[in-house]
């Protein structure tokens, strides 16, 4: 699998898929701390005679804003760059070439998923570190452990979306279908959470990895409360992987 992983990392880097994703994450890491700090001033500039009373900016707001933006925009970029992972190679014949070398179908698929997960985690972690330091310099110090755990939690949450998109790309007919499944998974993860967020079940839903960011960063919710959602997320990813590998083993590559 290492050969396939290396090949995919090279491919992702040279085709600008991975640097593009990292740049989007970095953009929000650089945007959110100053926009949080100066939001009140910016609003005053447009308010005219209106009096706007905003609470003083808190470092947790800047970091939570970063996580929220990555959850929104960067996940869309992630879907776009991963929807052709396998489907495009099935279309252009690269998959047939690779699979007629001494490479198992499992390794081919796992190499692709692993490379994208690594790239996404690296981008999110790098963005998280940048945002953390920038926030510290502008707004003051933030607790490191919750910020780190939430960043990893976002990486895990994004990996569910990535796994679904990868699966649809491997088993489906075209990149567009895979993109549709990726978007669908975003909604499927969000809708039950928005309904059940106040119930005990809500703690187990993956979306709570990102929805509780503000509360965890301010210390209202303990970090340990994210563990059930993290475990469910890992289980979901494992189910998607097993299902995809099983189906792909007997798939015809024309």
């Amino acid at each position: 699998m290492i050969q396939m992983l290396r090949r995919e990392l090279v491919d992702g880097w040279r085709s600008f898929r991975f640097p593009g994703l990292a740049l989007v994450v970095m953009f929000f890491a650089l945007l959110d701390p100053p926009s949080t700090k100066y939001m009140a001033e910016i609003l005053k500039m447009f308010a005219g005679d209106l009096v706007i009373q905003a609470p003083p900016p808190h470092p947790a707001d800047a970091f939570a804003s970063f996580l929220g933006d990555v959850n929104g925009m960067a996940l869309l970029v992630l879907i776009v760059i991963s929807m052709g992972l396998v489907a495009r190679e099935k279309e252009n014949g690269v998959a047939a070439w690779v699979l007629t070398r001494p490479v198992s179908r499992d390794n081919y698929l796992l190499g692709k998923l692993a490379a994208s997960v690594i790239a996404f985690f690296c981008a999110v972690l790098a963005g998280g570190v940048l945002c953390y330091l920038y926030t510290w310099s502008l707004l003051g110090r933030l607790e490191l452990v919750p910020a780190l755990v939430l960043t990893l939690g976002l990486g895990l949450y994004g990996s569910i979306v990535l796994a679904v998109t990868w699966s649809a790309s491997a088993l489906g007919e075209s990149p567009l279908v895979a993109g549709g499944w990726g978007l669908g998974s975003l909604f499927l993860l969000w809708i039950p959470s928005s309904i059940l967020s106040l119930t005990e079940v809500g703690r187990f839903l993956p979306y709570s990895l990102v929805s509780q960011a503000g509360a965890v960063l301010r210390g209202v919710t303990p970090v340990a409360d994210l563990i059930p959602a993290a475990l469910v997320s890992l289980a979901l990813i494992a189910v998607v992987i097993v299902f995809t590998l099983t189906r792909f083993r007997c798939l015809e590559i024309e």
Partner: peptide, 26 residues
Amino acid sequence: VTTEISPDLKRNVGYLAQEPVFPPQL
């Protein structure tokens, strides 16, 4: 031979497709 042909067996076979395609970034 099935679609789950093992890498060990594939090591004994070299295949050239009618219109060969390779990973384009390599």
